[in-house]
Each structure stands twice: as C-alpha cells, then as structure tokens.
Design a protein around this nucleic acid. Structure first.
Lengths: 180, 180
DNA sequence: GTCTATAATGAGATAGAC
DNA sequence: GTCTATCTCATTATAGAC
C-alpha cells in the first residue's frame, strides 16, 4: 500500500471533507457524503486514507504546523509587541479560517483525534505571551477576551474584506488587552 | 403516555446527559452511555423522553427562556448601559455555564435540534444593542470581541470565584467595547 | 485507482412482559 | 417505571474483481 502523501484525488477528498465539515459539523459528516460529493464510492476513500481519523488529522496538520511555528518563534523572542503578535495570530487564523472555525465551534468532534489538549495548550501559551506567566485574573481575562474575540471576528465577520477586518479586529483585541 | 414534564428521574437523566455532553460532546454521547451512568437501560430513557432530540431540546430550554427574556427586556428599554447589559449577559451565561459551553464548543451538534439560527440571532441582536443597528465594521468588531471574549472567560477561567471572575471579565469586555 | 459486495458494529427506537 | 428482546438503519471498514 503506497498511498502517496500527496495526490490530486487525495487533495480533492480533503477539500470536499472540509466543506462538509464546515457546513454540518465533523461528526455529522459521513464518509459516504464525502464520496458522493466527489462522485466516488466509500472504498475509494480508503485507498487514499487509512481511516476516517487519518483524514481528519491530515486536514488539521497544516494549521498545527503553522501555529506551532508561530508560538515557537514568539516564545524564543526576547521581547514581544502585543499588536504584532496578535497580527501574526490573525494572519495564521485567516489563512486557515475554515479549520479555525472547526476548532472553535466543533472542538468535541476534534477531540476524537486527540486535539483538545493541543488547543488548550495553544491558548495557554498565547495567554502567557500576552499577559505573562504569573498574570492575575484581570490580566488573564484581558488576554482571553483579546484572543477569543479575535477568533470570533473571523467567524462572524467573514464577509468583510481582509484588510478592513484585520484592522478592526486588531483594534478591538488590543483595546481589550489595555495599556501594556 | 402521560410523561410528566417534571419528575425525579427525568431530571437525573438531564443531569447525567449534560455531564456527558460536557465531557465528550453531544454527538459523541449515546443514549446507552447516559443510561449506564444512571444504572438504567435505554428503553427507560424513552419513557421519560420521546426521543433523543427531545432530551437535548429540553436541556437547552431554560437557557433559551432566560436569554430571550433578557433580550426582550433590553430591546424594550429606551436607553441601555453597556456594562449593565454585559453584566446581565454574564449572569445568565454563568447561571447556565455548562449549556453556554456547549453552545460555544459544540454548535454543529446543536444544529441537529435547530439551534444554530437561534444562536446567531442572539448574537446579532446583542451586537445591535451594543453597537447600534448601523454599526461599521470597527464597532461590530468591538461588540463581537466583548461578547465572544466574555463567553471564553466563563469557559477558560471556570475555576475562578464568581465575583472575581465577573469583575475581571466585565472590565476586559468593556475595554474592548471602548468609550461609548 | 476505483468498483461491487459485504462484514461488523453500534446507534436510535419500539413491543410487550413485569 | 423499568426491564428483555428485537427491529431498522447508518456507519466504518475490508475483500476481492477490474
């Protein structure tokens, strides 16, 4: 079983899956629906993916890589500018906005592929970067509002042109963060 | 089939269901698991609830009622104070924090019981109350950050004593909202 | 690389006894 | 009000032909 990690059909399956996951939820989508959308049959999917779980995981991988890289970079920096960090977080989130939407609105379904602890870890690390390791409740709340609000803007203002959305979102998030 | 709307067992089923929904997601929880947790069998559940859907819906009803009432009241008021509105929204959210968590992290599963449009409607109405009916993108983003951030604080700072959490959350949300 | 056919499992739901 | 037993259906997944 060679199953190349990249192929035309494999990619088309991932795209169809992501569309359906976004429309109706991860757990609510069956392999049959994905196959139907592409005019394929279920067994064809199993040629390209070992299991349903591998399909979901492969879909999330690009987001995982980008977010891990972003955090590693910022944690290595000697000093960080809050708006700058939020800006890079916005850019990664926008690049993977469909996946970020799943992460936000369908987390239990992604828990099936062991994603929950990872997501919580990201949020904790981002909060530490924004508020420091020993932040009190007030400072933590400010960081949480900034990060959570940013994610919500991507979902709820998805129709807005990126540049306008980026500035409005960062303004609001930085305001929540307050004077550093 | 009498099936009283309130009974000891019915309530215990609802509590067990909510626990499991919170732990592992709505769609990931089967009637079998709920029954097992109570030392019952599946058919016993069907004496108390017409269907799985009715169980889920009945669970959400108290939140629906409280949130509808809150919005009706504030929309009828001639003038609203932002921090006051957010405070009442915090109180309702805290009262139903487990359900609010589901609404935030498991929305596609609740879409099965026709909940998505309702949730989106609430957020739209709250945004209008906070930012006005003709708000530009910047003002909408501020309201979205305030509301979304508030919800995230309830989930992520759940261990914090209420009073402390309430003040920290409202401070951060109001900061996001900016000067009115 | 995709198909037909089918296995194996578990879900929601019902019938009828107690 | 709860049980045992069963039905129906959809799901993930596999075997083997083309």
């Amino acid at each position: 079983m060679p199953r190349p990690k990249t192929s035309q059909t494999r990619q088309r399956i991932q795209e169809a899956a992501l569309e359906l996951f976004t429309e109706q939820g991860v757990r609510q989508t069956s392999l049959r629906q994905i196959a139907d959308r592409l005019g394929l049959t279920k067994p064809a999917l199993y040629y390209h993916f070992e299991s349903r779980e591998e399909l979901v995981t492969s879909l999330l991988q690009p987001l995982v890589d980008d977010l891990d890289a972003l955090l590693a970079e910022d944690e290595a920096a000697s000093e960080i500018d809050a708006r700058d960090l939020l800006g890079r977080y916005f850019d990664v989130s926008y690049k993977h906005h469909a996946l970020m939407g799943l992460m936000r609105q369908d987390l239990p379904a992604l828990g099936e592929v062991g994603f929950v602890t990872r997501v919580l870890g990201w949020r904790r690390r981002l909060t530490v970067l924004l508020a420091g390791p020993d932040a009190d409740t007030a400072a933590q709340a400010r960081a949480i509002v900034a990060l959570g609000g940013l994610a919500d803007c991507l979902v709820l203002l998805a129709e807005t042109p990126v540049d306008e959305l980026r500035e409005a979102t960062l303004d609001a998030a930085c305001a929540a963060l307050g004077p550093s």
